[in-house]
Each structure stands twice: as C-alpha cells, then as structure tokens.
C-alpha cells in the first residue's frame, strides 16, 4: 500500500468514524442510563436531517448570507431533539420502564416505522439538497486528493461533542448524578435522586445528539426517504462493538468500524457492505459484552 492510499484511507476512516460516533453516542448514553435500546434513534437522525435541509433551504432562499446556514443545523438538531425526544419519552418510553428489554426494542422499532412514514407526510417524497454549508467552506487538497472541508469538520465536531460529554459527565454535578444512575438505579432512588427527571433529560440529550448527526450530515448527501434505516443498524453495530452504554466504547467502536470500512472500500470492495457486521460478529464472539461494557454483578 503506497503512502497516498494510506493517507486517503486514514482520512476517510476518520471522517466516517466521526460520523459514526456522532450518530451512535446518543444511542449508547440512552442505553447506559435507561437500559433502553432505542431503535427510534434512526428517526431522530432522519428528522434532524430533513429539518436541517429544510431550514437551510429557507435561510438560503431568503437571501441571508450562507454562513448562517450553520446556525440552522444547530437549530434543527435542538428543535428535533427536544420536541421529538420529549414527546417520545412522555408519550411512550415512560410507560415501558421495567418491561423486558426486548419488548422495549420492539416498541421503539414500531415508533421508528411510524416516524418514517410521518416524514413522508410532512416533507414529501422528493429528496432535499442543502449543499450551502459545503459551499461556504470550499475544498482543500490533502495527499493529492481534493476534499471538501465540510466533511473534515465532522472530525472536529465529533471531538468537541466527545469532549463536552466527557467533561459534562465527569466534572459536573449533573454528570455525576447520571453516572450514579448508570451504576445503580435502586441506590440512586434511595439517595433521593429524581430518576424520572434524569431519564427525561437523558432521553432528550440522546435525541439531540441523534438529530445533530442527521442535521450535520444533511448538506453532504441527498436527504431522501429511507434515510434513517442504515443508520440504526450501523450505530447498533458501533455501540455493540464498543460495549453498550459506554462512551469510550462508542469512540473505539466508531474508530474500528470507520477504519475497517475505509480499508474495505479502498482495498477490498467486495466486503464493503458487510465488513461492519463482520467486525461486530467477531467482537461479540470473543467479547460477548462488547469491548468496554460495565461489569455485571453476581447473581446468586
């Protein structure tokens, strides 16, 4: 493998890893705190993307400077995350606490299907293009290959989100509260922590992160029906590889999957479609709980 290809694979891998981390970190936080595997996470992503593309379109058409479209991305992520997240938690998830994990997966799967069709009702079937933010940043040359700067900023965004989450969870009072709930729900209740509130906040946080993933990716692709499907499966793979509920796990999982896929794309295109699942199977076979899963207590 020559140097240029290695650089290409590395950058492609990093960009894709960052994307994976963004979309899967919300999923893993929700699982860590609430023990809910939220299939509707794909809906947050898709709704974030559609809303972002839509808002960018409006902003751009109104003649305002294109640089402001970045603001629209943030607005879309917050709007979708808060509204959809809050709505789902209050109307559905809160009735599922304490039920079988598998039943909750099915319920969120049902929600995902419903939200998929509602997208068509709200946004129609035609694809959306919102390339303005990409145009603003232009492109640059790395290792002899032209790359758009916008994609590269994904790496920065993922790093910032990761850093904020790390600081937020370890250095703030609220973060420690969350960690306490992850560690032992019953003791947290006994200590007087308002678990209901923690759950709502967690779910909304996860939803905002999912929507942010979609909102940020929207300018680089055509936002079309079926947008959320691949994402769920991919982010599940990432989260399972890293260990459900672990943020460092999500980082490692995203890096492994991202780089593995970049290698496959450039060197072994035949396996590109399933390299992610191949890695997932391999990891699960040797480490059933994923690479970074918290240990389980003695049963008897």
């Amino acid at each position: 493998m020559d140097f240029a290809t290695a650089i290409t694979i590395l950058i492609d891998g990093l960009v894709f890893s960052s994307y994976l981390f963004l979309v899967s970190v919300g999923l893993t936080i929700i699982f860590g705190v609430m023990k809910i595997l939220n299939v509707a996470h794909g809906s947050f992503y898709a709704w974030g993307a559609y809303t972002s593309a839509y808002l960018i379109g409006i902003w751009s058409n109104s003649g305002l400077p294109d640089a402001g479209t970045f603001l629209m991305i943030a607005v879309a992520a917050l709007l979708v995350g808060v509204v959809l997240g809050l709505f789902l938690e209050r109307c559905l998830i809160q009735f599922m606490y304490g039920r079988d994990e598998v039943i909750i997966v099915l319920a969120t799967f049902a929600t995902f299907l419903i939200l998929e069709d509602l997208i068509l009702v709200v946004f129609g079937v035609d694809p959306y293009f919102a390339y303005q933010p990409m145009m603003v940043l232009g492109s640059t040359q790395i290792g002899g290959i032209m790359r758009d700067v916008y994609s590269l900023t994904l790496i920065g965004l993922a790093a910032v989100v990761g850093l904020i989450l790390w600081v937020g969870l370890t250095k703030t009072k609220w973060g420690r509260l969350l960690t306490a709930v992850i560690h032992d729900r019953e003791i947290s209740v006994a200590m007087g922590i308002d678990v209901t509130k923690v759950f709502i906040l967690t779910f909304v946080l996860g939803a905002v992160l999912g929507a942010l993933g979609g909102a940020y990716v929207a300018p680089t692709v055509s936002v079309a029906p079926g947008f959320g499907i691949d994402v769920i499966v991919l982010s599940f793979a990432v989260v399972v590889i890293g260990g459900m509920g672990s943020i460092p796990g999500a980082i490692i999982g995203a890096l492994i999957v991202g780089i593995a896929r970049a290698i496959a794309v450039h060197k072994l295109p035949e396996v590109e479609l399933f390299v992610v699942y191949g890695v997932m199977v391999a990891v699960l076979v040797f480490r059933p709980e994923g690479l970074f899963a918290p240990a389980k207590a003695r049963k008897i």
Partner: peptide, 15 residues
C-alpha cells in the same frame, strides 16, 4: 405510503 405507519401502530397496540 402509510404501510409502515400501520405496521408500527399495530405493533404498539399489541405490545
């Protein structure tokens, strides 16, 4: 165009 919606809603009702 509402097939998934029907499936999803049915699934929720059953659960």
């Amino acid at each position: 165009g509402a097939w998934q919606l029907i499936v999803g809603a049915t699934l929720l009702v059953i659960i």
